[in-house]
């Protein structure tokens, strides 16, 4: 709210993350800015640490060195109240949905709302149905359990849960993986619609070239523990970096462009 419109909503400086007590250095002095209101696609070879970066920003993986600022709050030095305030303003879609298996869809979506807001059951139910509608699901799904949903529906419900508190920032970890091309395309449209209507900032880890072309404003590429390139899809395509060249000019990429 206090930030000017083009201010960085996430600012990562010299981030270093190690696993196994220094045996493997996953991120090595990484710098990244995510601007307010943009959809940033994050790509890189499998195992390069894309998910690790996301999990480090949201505080699930401890870091060795570096600073992470989200909404202008330094998460390293923030006390638990400040952290909670930040956590309330973001929503996270995990790769496999991470829906609570013992709660119904309705309860899953209402869970964060109940925790933070004192509102009536009626409003809770209405908001649940509204969120389900936004992610393209029918109200009848509300009383099903996660084990009774298909993979695509799980992702949609998980997105609805991530959006339950109307966050300003959404992290999506491979949102279209495991969806059929039509479903994936719908999901991209959905992300773009939500981004427009709610003014979301989206941090998306993805491998889906279609998503990169249609949904993302900027693309960041991770390699050797650093961000090796940031820019629009045209800049990525013009890049001479070998991995980028094979990624954006490979067989699959050509199929997307033509």
């Amino acid at each position: 709210m206090a930030n000017p419109p083009d201010d960085a909503i996430i600012r990562v400086r010299d981030l270093t993350v190690e696993f196994g007590g220094g045996k493997t250095r996953v991120l090595n002095g990484l710098n990244l800015d995510v601007k307010r209101g943009e959809v940033l696609g994050f790509v890189g070879p499998s195992g390069a640490g894309k998910s690790v970066l996301m999990r480090t920003i949201i505080g699930l993986v401890p870091r060795l060195a570096g600073d992470i600022e989200v909404f202008g709050v330094d998460l390293g030095s923030a006390d638990s109240d400040a952290r909670r305030a930040v956590e309330r303003r973001w929503g996270i879609l995990f790769q496999h949905g991470a829906l609570f298996s013992s709660l119904s869809v309705r309860q899953n979506i209402q869970f964060p709302v109940r925790e933070y807001l004192k509102v009536s059951e009626r409003l809770l139910d209405e908001i649940t149905i509204a969120k389900l509608g936004m992610v393209g699901l029918k109200p009848e799904v509300a009383d099903r359990y996660p084990s009774e949903l298909s993979g695509g529906m799980i992702k949609r419900v998980a997105l609805a849960r991530a959006l339950a508190l109307d966050p300003e920032l959404v992290f999506l970890d491979e949102p279209t993986s495991g969806l059929d091309p039509i479903g994936a395309g719908d999901f991209d449209d959905l992300v773009m619609t939500l981004q427009r209507t709610l003014g979301l900032t989206v941090f998306m880890v993805t491998h889906d070239l279609d998503s990169l072309y249609t949904a993302c404003d900027r693309i960041a590429v991770l390699g050797d523990g650093k961000v090796i390139a940031v820019g629009s899809i045209e800049e990525m395509r013009a890049s001479q970096h070998p991995w980028l060249k094979s990624y954006f000019h490979g067989k699959r990429a050509r199929a997307v462009v033509t």
Binding site: R106, D125, E126, G133, P139, E140, D143, T193, T197, L198
Partner: peptide, 16 residues
């Protein structure tokens, strides 16, 4: 667009 989005919400079915 946001208001249009919520306008599509139908009456809530009561929870079972």
């Amino acid at each position: 667009t946001l208001v249009d989005e919520v306008r599509r919400v139908k009456e809530t079915p009561p929870p079972d």
